[in-house]
Design a protein around this nucleic acid. Structure first.
Lengths: 240, 240
DNA sequence: CGCGTCATTGATGTGCATCAAGTGGTGTGG
DNA sequence: CCACACCACTTGATGCACATCAATGACGCG
């Protein structure tokens, strides 16, 4: 093997604890290395897969940031999630062997391609992997419950506060700041995810700024008062 | 065995094609019979599991009708789904070994209790079962994408139309009418699911009645014009 | 530098929530 | 068997949060 080729495998990937199960033996890790068929790079704005496309693989995000969105026949669309490094994308395709949403890179990205038949094969033998796959899917279901709660019963400020807290928390587990973040998506995409129009997102940001809860410069956001955001989500804002 | 005890097992359950994989051998079906530990009856209004409770099992609904709901700390809650015979409930519990929502029977119900460790064990050996479990979870993810689309971008009429079409379609695959259904839930529960207040649900029903699209008497609904409902969902109402 | 994209802000409109009153069906106990 | 209470539902009047429409501003890129 070319000595300049960096061996890119789960076994020496610093995201392993995010996308793979813990407590594997050396031998099991070797086998999981084989599960990752290839890598794939996607340019900003490019699609990893789109609605209707045949499903073959799940994708573990190595670098970059994605959105997934579904669309109605009449053209409206809805961002169903934002995914970052260490997260797995493509679960929607399993049920009908076709993807039912689009996955679009919001910045240059690289993913590990994991053919699903290999995942199934290997998870029949490696219990920890089996359990891990189940948990990833269950986690997605629970996440979506949370989004349904947000869309079904929260007001604009609560939605945006919950969104910011969720993002910053996920970034924090990846070693980034607890209080500072760079949004990879537009106001319109945030709005689509949160069931709001972009103007409402913008106004709500401005309100948070006025209240001294965050600083916003373009897509750079600094959270000045995490507790205030949490109170907003829980509808307990110091009030009358 | 007592000859009066009806052998209630997957192998002779008429819902098998809904909750179990097809194309199993006789031997595999036998093993799946063993997966179902027990049955459990739940009275109308009773809970199958609730938020925070330890997760042990998935449940296949034999008879009856459930709702699942999540709640915020400040008491608001959101119905995340309605489940009927042949559907599997409890997937939310896998990720953290605790349930994260409540499952409440809307009418007297009976479920098959399937301990999850046995499911995992057996699905390591029976490929069709493994695949089936994956598809069930993926189907739930896709369903929730649809709900997010509904909550994030549809108006009241579209939401209710989509809800009715979905219900009647699921009932139809269970052998019921394509045009007539009995709602097992209150207007308030429908509203919670659809992100609307009960008054809005009621008014929207009334509007559909005025437009000759449905007949409503209490919880009995007869769909007079399925195409009109579909047009409403797709936002193509014969219009100006 | 000029154009396109994204964001902010203001003015106005509207769909649904809220508040409130009344109806009808159901179950219960006298 | 009827009277009553309770609950789910309907319908009307009003208000408000967010959408819509519109104008302007700030970057970033060719």
């Amino acid at each position: 093997m070319n000595p300049h080729t960096i061996k890119v495998a789960c076994s020496n990937c610093n995201l392993r604890e995010l996308c793979m199960p813990l407590g594997l033996t050396e031998a099991q890790i070797q086998r999981i290395d084989d599960m990752v068929a290839t890598r794939r790079k996607i340019k900003r704005g490019g699609t990893l897969f789109h609605n209707g496309e045949a499903f073959t693989s799940l994708y573990a995000i190595r670098t970059g940031f994605f959105k997934t969105c579904v669309a109605t026949e009449d053209g409206r669309d809805q961002v169903t999630g934002f995914q970052m490094a260490g997260e797995v994308i493509g679960l929607d395709g399993i049920v009908n062997d076709r993807h039912t949403c689009d996955a679009i890179a919001l910045e240059d990205a690289e993913v590990c391609v994991m053919p699903f038949d290999r995942i199934e094969e290997l998870s029949r033998e490696v219990t920890a992997l089996q359990s891990h796959v189940h948990k990833i899917m269950s986690r997605e279901i629970v996440r979506e419950h949370g989004v349904m709660l947000l869309l079904g019963s929260m007001r604009a400020e609560e939605r945006l506060a919950a969104f910011l807290l969720n993002l910053v928390q996920r970034l924090h587990t990846r070693g980034f700041s607890q209080s500072e973040l760079v949004l990879r998506m537009t106001r319109e995409e945030i709005g689509s995810y949160l069931g709001l129009k972009l103007e409402t997102v913008s106004r709500t940001f401005s309100k948070f700024v006025d209240d001294g809860i965050v600083e916003v410069r373009q897509r750079h956001v600094r959270i000045l008062n995490t507790d205030a955001l949490k109170r907003i989500v829980n509808n307990q804002q110091a009030c009358h």
